[in-house]
C-alpha cells in the first residue's frame, strides 16, 4: 500500500524541483548548443540561460517567472495499491499543486477561460490535468509533473496520406518559423511531434513526445528514429537561434510519437518544450521508498504495444528476469 501522505510530500518536492532545477539531459543539450553557437546575440542568450539555471538552483528560485501550467502524469504498476484509492491520490496532487504555488512560489497561471477567475493556486476546473498509464508489472507509482508553457509553440493540422513525409516536414517547418520568430517558442526547445491517433490523442502524443522523453532518446522504430535525427538537423539549419536571432540552434532534440489513425488521414501536432523544460519524476514504493530520476520513461514497450494481447505473460517475464 502506498500512503497518501507520501504521495503528497513527494508531489510537493516534485513541484518545486520542476520549477527550480533544469533537467540534466536538457541542460547538457543546451550546454552543447552554447559551445557551438556563433550568432553573437543568440550566443549571449544561451550563456545567460546557463547562468540563470545556476542562479535558480543557488537561490532556490523558479527558473522562469512564467512557471507554466502544472500537470501530472501518473503511472501505476498493475499491482500497486493506493491508500484511500485513486480519488485520494488526486486530492493529494491537487493539494500539492496549490501548496507549491504559494510555497515556491510559482505564478498562479490558471484562470477560468471566460470569467478569468484566479484562485491564486493553479487549481481549478480540470487543473491540474492528471493523466494515467499502467504497466503490467510492479507495485509502485510513478509521479511525473510537467509545467509546460501554455501559449506559443504548439500547433495541429489534419494532413492526409497524399501530403506524405514532405507534408509532415513542411508543417514542422511552419510551426518552427511561426513560433520561432521573436523567440515566442522560447527555443532552443525539445520539439515533440505527434503523428496519428485521433485529433485529441494526436495532440497528446506530441505533447508527451516533447515533455516525457529525454534529450538523446530515440523512437524504437529505426525509420522514425532517422526522421527524428533529420528533423533535428533541419530545424537547426533554418539559421534561427534563441529569441529568433540569427543562429544555429533552434531544436535541442526532436521526438516523434505515433498512434494508429483513421485510414484516410495523417493528423500531426507539433509542441515545443521551452528553455526551462520543467519536469520532475519520482517512483514511490510501498513501505516508503522514493526514487527520484531524470527520465520519465513514459514510452515503454507496453505503452507502444501494437498487438491485442501483451505478449509476455506474467510467469514468462519472471522467467526472463531469472535467466
Amino acid at each position: 500500500m502506498i500512503k497518501t501522505d507520501q504521495i503528497h510530500s513527494t508531489a510537493c518536492d516534485l513541484m518545486s524541483k520542476a520549477a527550480i532545477e533544469i533537467p540534466e539531459d536538457y541542460h547538457d543539450g543546451l550546454e552543447r548548443a552554447a559551445a557551438t553557437e556563433d550568432g553573437s546575440l543568440a550566443s549571449f542568450v544561451l550563456q545567460a540561460m546557463l547562468e540563470n539555471y545556476a542562479v535558480a538552483k543557488e537561490d532556490g528560485r523558479a527558473m522562469c517567472g512564467d512557471t507554466g501550467v502544472p500537470r501530472w502524469f501518473v503511472k501505476l504498476g498493475n499491482d500497486s495499491r493506493i491508500e484511500g484509492g485513486m480519488c485520494a491520490l488526486e486530492t493529494a496532487l491537487r493539494r500539492a499543486t496549490a501548496e507549491a504555488t504559494n510555497g515556491v512560489p510559482l505564478r498562479p497561471n490558471r484562470v477560468h477561460p471566460l470569467w478569468r477567475t484566479d484562485h491564486n493556486n493553479n487549481v481549478g476546473i480540470g487543473a491540474p490535468e492528471i493523466e494515467y498509464a499502467f504497466e503490467p508489472e510492479g507495485d509502485w507509482v510513478d509521479l511525473i509533473t510537467v509545467h509546460k508553457g501554455g501559449l506559443f509553440g504548439t500547433d495541429y493540422r489534419m494532413l492526409f496520406p497524399a501530403d506524405g513525409i514532405q507534408g509532415v516536414r513542411r508543417f514542422y517547418l511552419d510551426s518552427l518559423l511561426a513560433f520561432g520568430k521573436r523567440g515566442l517558442a522560447c527555443q532552443p526547445a525539445i520539439v515533440g511531434i505527434g503523428l496519428g491517433g485521433s485529433k485529441d490523442t494526436c495532440m497528446t502524443l506530441g505533447k508527451r513526445a516533447s515533455t516525457l522523453r529525454v534529450v538523446g532518446s530515440r523512437n524504437p522504430d529505426p525509420r522514425i528514429a532517422e526522421l527524428e535525427d533529420s528533423f533535428r538537423e533541419l530545424g537547426n539549419s533554418i539559421g534561427m537561434g534563441a529569441m529568433g536571432f540569427a543562429g544555429k540552434h533552434m531544436v535541442i532534440d526532436c521526438h516523434i510519437e505515433v498512434g494508429y489513425c483513421h485510414t484516410g488521414g495523417l493528423p500531426m501536432s507539433v509542441h515545443a518544450f521551452c528553455l526551462s523544460s520543467r519536469r520532475a519524476v519520482a517512483r514511490l514504493f510501498p513501505g516508503g521508498r522514493v526514487e527520484h530520476r531524470v527520465d520519465p520513461d513514459w514510452f515503454t514497450p507496453y505503452q507502444r504495444r501494437e498487438t491485442v494481447d501483451w505478449p509476455f505473460e506474467r510467469e514468462g517475464s519472471e522467467q526472463e528476469a531469472a535467466e
Binding site: 546575440l41 493540422r157 489534419m158 494532413l159 492526409f160 497524399a162 501530403d163 514532405q166 507534408g167 516536414r169 513542411r170 508543417f171 517547418l173 518559423l177 520568430k181 521573436r182 533541419l234 539549419s237 533554418i238 539559421g239 534561427m240 529569441m243 529568433g244 536571432f245 540569427a246
Partner: peptide, 25 residues
C-alpha cells in the same frame, strides 16, 4: 531588432522548404 533578425533568416526559407508542397487541405 527582431525584424532585422527576421530579414537575415528569410534568406534561408526557400532552401529549407525545398521539396515540400502546400498541404492538400
Amino acid at each position: 531588432l527582431f525584424e532585422r533578425e527576421n530579414a537575415k533568416i528569410a534568406e534561408n526559407v526557400a532552401r529549407v522548404y525545398a521539396g515540400t508542397k502546400p498541404a492538400v487541405l
